[in-house]
């Protein structure tokens, strides 16, 4: 110390810590009560603080912060903590946002799937309806076809009936009563239309032949029976069989209906069922 005050050189030595401890203690005592010397020392400290700043920076462990705060009894979080919490909260919010976005995306996807499923259900319903309508249409078509077939059959029957009726009314036709060989209740007629060369065999009460059997119509021409074809009855036991008269046969003694094997035979061999006397024909 120079006199009663601290010189700049002494202040530097004091500030940098190079002063002997006893002298440093005296300087410290003086500085406390001397503003000018205190300013000089402060200036020296400003310079020596620069030495501290030159030190390579080392980061203290994070646990030190907790130790200091526990030691000081500080409970309120500082900016660092708040920043950390805000960062954590931000990260949490970000995570939540991502989760919400993902959830929203999932909800959106689920919604789309649900809509697609509903649309699929609607389409399936429409398909089912269309299929049902198609089935109905097919059923109607089938019924129409059946009706058309029946109508066609009816028309054919009507046409045959009309032809038979015309044949019966025709002066060129000949009609012979048909008799059952046994004592059945079956009755019938044999009609030969000479003009059209058509022959009808009409009968009712004739039992249907079982499978593998058929009725076969014959005419006797010169002692030889000529087949005029085979037929069967309907469920009511009615038959109206129409065929063309062979051109080689001009007359016949009688006609016979026999029971033959299905498909008919060349020569009559089965039992006779009906017999018609044709001797009166021209």
């Amino acid at each position: 110390m120079t006199g009663a005050h601290v010189s700049e050189e002494q202040a530097d030595e004091f500030a940098i810590g190079a002063m002997e401890p006893e002298i440093a203690a005296l300087v410290a005592l003086h500085v406390n009560d001397c503003l000018p010397c205190r300013l000089i020392v402060a200036e020296s400290r400003r310079v020596t603080a620069g030495l501290a700043l030159s030190v390579r920076r080392a980061r203290p462990p994070r646990a030190l912060r907790g130790r200091v705060f526990r030691e000081t009894g500080i409970s309120r979080p500082g900016p660092f903590t708040w920043a950390a919490r805000i960062a954590t909260a931000g990260a949490g919010l970000a995570a939540v946002a991502v989760a919400v976005a993902a959830f929203t995306g999932m909800v959106s996807i689920r919604g789309q799937v649900r809509d697609l499923r509903q649309e699929n259900v609607g389409l399936q319903t429409q398909i089912n309806d269309a299929l049902a309508q198609d089935v109905a249409i097919k059923a109607v078509t089938r019924r129409l076809s059946e009706a058309e077939r029946l109508s066609s059959e009816i028309r054919a029957d009507a046409k045959d009936d009309r032809a038979l009726l015309l044949a019966i009314l025709s002066p060129e036709s000949e009609i012979a009563e048909v008799f059952a060989v046994d004592e059945s209740s079956a009755i019938g007629r044999f009609v030969w239309d000479r003009e059209q060369q058509r022959i009808w065999f009409v009968a009712s009460g004739l039992p249907a032949r079982p499978a593998g059997q058929t009725y076969q119509l014959w005419v006797n021409a010169g002692g030889r029976y000529v087949s005029l074809g085979t037929f069967n009855t309907d469920s009511a036991g009615f038959v109206r069989y129409q065929t063309w008269a062979p051109p080689t046969i001009e007359s016949s003694e009688n006609a016979v209906v026999t029971i033959e094997t299905a498909g008919g035979v060349q020569e009559r061999s089965g039992p006779s069922v009906f017999v018609a006397d044709l001797s009166g024909f021209r």
Partner: peptide, 10 residues
Amino acid sequence: DQVAFAALYD
């Protein structure tokens, strides 16, 4: 002020 001290510390 504890918050100020925390800031000063940091």
